[in-house]
Write a protein that binds this DNA or RNA. Structure first.
Length: 476
RNA sequence: GGCGGCGUAGCCAAGUGGCUAAGGCGGAGGUCUGCAAAAUCUCUAUUCAUCGGUUCGACUCCGAUCGCCGCCUCCA
C-alpha cells in the first residue's frame, strides 16, 4: 500500500505523490522563542520528527525546514518586563529550544531560518503582494486584503461573510475588512525595527512562514505541518500570501496534530496549565515521552498526566527488557550467518504489518502494537528451556528489525542513557561484584540488603543465571 | 451561532460492512526463581455513548439525540 496522509485541505486521506518523485519537501511551523516550550508544544516536534525520519527510511530524499520566530509581540513584551533587549530574550530561548530538541532526540532540521535573518525576503514578498493589489498600506502598516484572494477560507472551511459576522473579531476602523491581517507592523517607540519602503517596522507573524517555505523548499511544497490551532488563521493566511504572490498551489498536504489536554483543557501558555518539556525530562527519559506520543494517533487529542507517562514508561521497559534479554542469550552464540527461510518469511510478515500501519497516515499506535507482537514472539522463545538454531535466528532477526525501526522511532536510547555517569557505573559494578560473591556463598540476607538498598536509590537489579544487570528507574 | 474532530474494557488505545473487536498499562491465579525482578501460561468488552434507518448482515455507512474537545482572538 502506498503512503497515505490525512490532508486538512481536502478533509480526506490521500496518497502522497510528491511534487518531485523521490523527494519530499516538508515544513513545520516552529516556536516563537519567548519562553521554554512545554510538553504540548513538544508533540509536533516529536511526531513530525518521527514522520520525517520514517519518510527517509522509506527511501525519500526529505528536506525538512522549521522556522524560528525571533521577533514578535510576545518577545517584545517579555523583553520590556525583564528590561533587556528583545534580541537577548530571543537568543536565550532559541538556545534553550535547540537544547531541548536535542534532548528529546529530535534530529536537526535541514534549515532553521529566523525571521530577523530574512527581513529582505519578507519585504520583497510584501512588495510583490502590494504590486498585485492584494495588500495595502496605511500609515506604515501593511495589510493583506482577504477579499481580493478568492481562495480565502479553503483550508479551514470558513467563508469570509460568516467570519465577518463573528463577534470576536477586533475591529480596526482603518482596515478595509476586519479580517485583513498585518504583513508589516509600523514600529512603536523603543521597539526593534527594520527599514522598509513603508518606514521602520517589523514583519507580521504569518508572512515569515510563506517566505521561508518558498525560499528554502520552493513555491509548491509537499507537506506543511503544525498544530491544529494553526489552521485558522495562520495557515489560511499563509496560503493567501503565498498563492497570492506565486499564483501556484502552496502546499500539497496539510497535516495538523491534535492537542495535549490537561484536566480536559488544552495545555497552553496563556491558560498557565503547562509543564515545560525540560522539567518533564528531568524526571522522565526523552524516550518515554516519545513512547507516550507514539502510542496515540497524532491527530487525536491526548490527555496528559503523570500516570499516563508512567504507563508509557512501563510499556517501553517491556521492549527494552526484551532487547536486553535477547542480547544476553545471543551474546555467546556463534552461528553461521545463513538465514532460515521460514524465519525470514515469518518476520517479514510482522514487518510488513508495521509498515502498513505507518503508511496509513502514520498510525504509530497501531505500529507500536506490531512492535509488541515482535516482543511477545521474542519473549516466548526466551522462555523456552532449550533453544533451536531457528530460535536463535528468530531472536537475531527480531532484534535487528526493532533496531531498524528505531532509526525513526528513537526510543531505544532509553537503555543506553540510563547508564550515563561513569563514576556511578563503576561504583555499582563494584557493589554487584561483592553481591555476587555473597550469593555464591548463599549469604542471601546480605545480598538482598544490597539489592533493596540500591532499589531505594532507584537502581533496579535483575538476576540472570549467568549475570546481573541493572538500570535506573523512576518509581511512582 | 459557524467550521472541524471525538465518545471502543478499570485506565490508555488501534481497528474492520460479515471468521475469535489489536496492542499496552493495571489487576487475579498458575509456572519458573534461594528470594526478588524479568519472562511465560490462563483469565480480565456476548460488546464498541444512546435511539432510529440503510443492508441478507453494522461497532464500522446514513440521520437524530446526549456528552466532550478544538478553532472562529495570540497559541503546537
Amino acid at each position: 500500500m502506498a503512503l497515505q496522509v490525512y490532508n486538512t485541505l481536502t478533509n480526506k486521506k490521500e496518497e502522497v505523490v510528491p511534487v518531485t518523485p523521490g523527494k519530499i519537501t516538508m515544513y513545520l511551523c516552529g516556536p516563537t522563542v519567548y519562553d521554554y516550550f512545554h510538553i504540548g508544544n513538544a508533540r509536533p516536534f516529536i511526531v513530525y520528527d518521527i514522520f520525517r525520519r520514517y519518510l527517509k527510511y522509506r527511501g525519500y530524499d526529505v528536506k525538512f525546514v522549521m522556522n524560528v520566530t525571533d521577533i514578535d509581540d510576545k518577545i517584545i513584551t517579555k523583553a520590556i518586563k525583564e528590561a533587556v533587549p528583545a534580541s537577548e530574550v530571543a537568543g536565550k530561548y532559541t538556545n534553550a529550544f535547540f537544547e531541548d530538541l536535542e534532548k528529546l532526540g529530535v534530529e536537526p532540521a535541514d534549515e532553521y531560518p529566523k525571521a530577523t535573518e530574512n527581513i529582505n525576503e519578507i519585504i520583497a514578498l510584501i512588495e510583490r503582494l502590494i504590486d498585485k493589489g492584494l495588500a495595502y498600506q496605511i500609515e506604515g502598516d501593511v495589510y493583506y486584503s482577504v477579499a481580493k484572494f478568492s481562495g480565502y477560507g479553503k483550508l479551514s472551511g470558513k467563508n469570509i461573510e460568516e467570519l465577518k459576522s463573528g463577534a470576536r473579531i477586533e475591529i480596526d476602523a482603518r482596515k478595509k475588512n476586519p479580517l485583513d491581517f498585518s504583513l508589516w507592523k509600523a514600529a512603536k517607540p523603543g521597539e526593534p525595527a527594520w527599514d522598509s519602503p513603508w518606514g521602520k517596522g517589523r514583519p507580521g507573524w504569518h508572512i515569515e512562514c510563506s517566505v521561508m517555505s518558498m525560499k528554502y523548499l520552493g513555491e509548491t511544497i509537499d507537506i506543511h505541518a503544525g498544530g491544529s490551532d494553526l489552521v485558522f488563521p495562520h495557515h489560511e493566511n499563509e496560503i493567501a500570501q503565498s498563492e497570492g504572490a506565486s499564483g501556484k498551489p502552496f502546499v500539497k498536504y496539510w497535516m495538523h496534530n491534535g492537542f495535549l489536554n490537561i484536566e480536559g483543557e488544552k495545555m497552553s501558555k496563556s491558560l498557565g496549565n503547562f509543564f515545560t518539556a525540560r522539567d518533564i525530562m528531568k524526571k522522565y527519559h526523552a524516550s518515554v515521552i516519545r513512547m507516550f506520543f507514539l502510542q496515540k494517533h497524532y491527530k487525536s487529542p491526548v490527555s496528559f498526566s503523570e500516570d499516563r507517562i508512567l504507563e508509557s514508561q512501563n510499556a517501553l521497559e517491556r521492549i527494552i527488557t526484551a532487547m536486553q534479554n535477547i542480547d544476553i542469550v545471543l551474546k555467546d552464540i556463534d552461528f553461521e550467518d545463513n538465514d532460515d527461510q521460514k524465519v525470514v518469511e515469518q518476520i517479514a510478515g510482522l514487518k510488513s504489518e508495521f509498515l502498513k500501519n505507518m503508511d496509513d497516515d502514520f498510525n504509530t499506535a497501531g505500529a507500536m502494537s506490531n512492535i509488541f507482537d515482535l516482543v511477545k514472539e521474542a519473549n516466548h522463545i526466551l522462555s523456552k528451556t532449550s533453544l533451536l538454531r531457528e530460535d536463535y535466528i528468530t531472536l537475531k532477526e527480531i532484534r535487528a528489525i526493532i533496531e531498524e525501526f528505531d532509526s525513526f522511532l528513537g526510543i531505544l536510547s532509553y537503555k543506553e542513557e540510563m547508564h550515563t555517569s561513569v563514576s556511578e557505573d563503576s561504583l555499582i559494578s563494584i557493589l554487584l561484584d561483592v553481591r555476587e560473591q555473597l550469593r555464591k556463598e548463599k549469604l542471601w540476607n546480605l545480598s538482598d540488603e544490597i539489592r533493596d538498598k540500591l532499589a531505594n536509590l532507584g537502581v533496579e537489579i535483575k538476576d540472570y543465571p549467568d549475570k546481573t544487570i541493572w538500570m535506573k528507574k523512576i518509581k511512582s
